[in-house]
Design a protein around this nucleic acid. Sequence first.
DNA 1: ACCTTGTTTTGATACCTGTCAACCTAGAGG
DNA 2: CCTCTAGGTTGACAGGTATCAAAACAAGGT
Lengths: 125, 125
Amino acid sequence: MSKQQGTNNLTDLNGGEPCCVPMTEQRIPAETAATLAPAFKALGDPVRLQLMSMIASAPDGEICVCDLTPAFDLSGPTISHHLKTLRDTGLVTSERRGTWVYYRPRPEALRQLASLLAVEPATAV
Amino acid sequence: MSKQQGTNNLTDLNGGEPCCVPMTEQRIPAETAATLAPAFKALGDPVRLQLMSMIASAPDGEICVCDLTPAFDLSGPTISHHLKTLRDTGLVTSERRGTWVYYRPRPEALRQLASLLAVEPATAV
DNA sequence: ACCTTGTTTTGATACCTGTCAACCTAGAGG
DNA sequence: CCTCTAGGTTGACAGGTATCAAAACAAGGT
């Protein structure tokens, strides 16, 4: 493979590899920052952060939009909009089954962001 | 009495404790999300993400603004503005020594965010 | 004191974003 | 076919934000 140097590519976010040298150990290249920033940005809204946590902590590994929407004082379209943002950044995936749509987290994405922020080396794989 | 349990309070970010149940294990309460989201938001800009990484990975634990500014194609004021954002969210601190201002990371803050995003290593695939 | 350099603050402006109302689409069932 | 419900899309608008130029502020050197 390539050197593990500038390997903070969020290709992983949509692809699915571990990755990411902690930013405490190595400076993030411009293009990597440009790729990863949107993911942080997506989590940078209280509603989306909550949505993400609800999806990520869903007991069955997935959760119905019909369970997400009523948890907020927001209109359906607004929730849908936020979910789309999370989808577009690769943090979650969605699947329609019959009438309902289910969202599930993308652990690789979370793992990637977490490892970037890691302060102490090697708590994860 | 302070609640110890769902303690995702970003008071820690400005205070200085470990904290944070991973969002994969527990849903984030509204107020916690409101407190933590700004930190993610701050990292949600490519320039700030780079700045944060430059500060966090500074060999001496700190780095001069004079070393940060020339790394970007942006005006001084703009860099200063971004640094202020990082400062305001508690991700970094700054200190003036003589002519120059030095920024250093706030590891507790990074650690807090990282632990929030932490994914169980075992549940994998 | 006066410049000179480094950093932050202050407008000003163009762009981005969160929100809702209204409308559209996809299945399930009659 | 039609209708009903769950979600998503579109359009519009208020508020936020990234950026710069200009000015202010801070330290040092002259």
